[in-house]
């Protein structure tokens, strides 16, 4: 699978540092919830019925065992011991505490993961056929194209404030996987 370049690594780490500072300012009251809301949504942190919810991107639904173990570690350390996989191939943690959010993003960055563009009016995580690279009726593996779209869409300056959210799906097989 794809490994972060130095550029990817530096970008994700810089966003963790930036959000760490934003959370600190929210906690000490220098940012109101109205001011903080667009900042947290840029990092996938929603406010739900009972608690915050953090949506973590799983690019085109592909995970390594090391990343899966880190998701388990996050669930145990900062949530209630479970996670919820979504229809757009992401994972949501339903009970994070705001002061823990920076540490969670740091733990994600340790395994080349993040929650950037899992919310807001941006290009969201690109989804791909989950049988990519394995299924018999595939014309070509869609994952390299999905990764190309990920690199292009992440922090794309022209497309951070679209009229509304934007979702792209790609399949390498003319027939949808069951």
């Amino acid at each position: 699978m794809y490994s972060y370049s130095d550029f990817d690594e530096a970008f994700v780490r810089s966003r963790v540092a930036q959000f760490t500072d934003q959370v600190a300012r929210r906690l000490d009251g220098s940012l109101s919830e109205d001011e903080f809301r667009p900042l947290r949504l840029m990092n996938g942190l929603y406010l739900q019925l009972h608690a915050y919810m953090l949506r973590v991107a799983i690019p085109y639904g592909t995970l390594s065992p090391r990343q899966m173990r880190q998701l388990a570690f996050i669930a145990d350390t900062w949530d209630k011991g479970y996670g919820h996989f979504t229809t757009r191939q992401n994972i949501q943690f339903n009970w994070p505490k705001l002061p823990d959010a920076p540490a969670i993003l740091g733990a994600l960055a340790d395994v080349e993961m993040h929650a950037i563009q899992t919310s807001g009016n941006t290009v969201r995580n690109v989804t791909a056929d989950h049988f990519a690279g394995a299924t018999a009726d595939e014309i070509d593996d869609p994952r390299p194209y999905a990764e190309l779209l990920r690199q292009w869409s992440t922090d794309h300056p022209e497309f951070q404030f679209l009229p509304r959210k934007f979702k792209i799906a790609i399949t390498g097989s003319p027939v949808t996987a069951p």
């Binding site: 639904g61 899966m68 989950h130």
Partner: peptide, 28 residues
Amino acid sequence: GDATSDQMRIIADLAERYGHSDLRISHE
């Protein structure tokens, strides 16, 4: 769609042992 942390770790181990260390999350 929910998985416990124990299940995630077991799946990770099984992927390493039997699945060429590749995991996918499906739309379903």
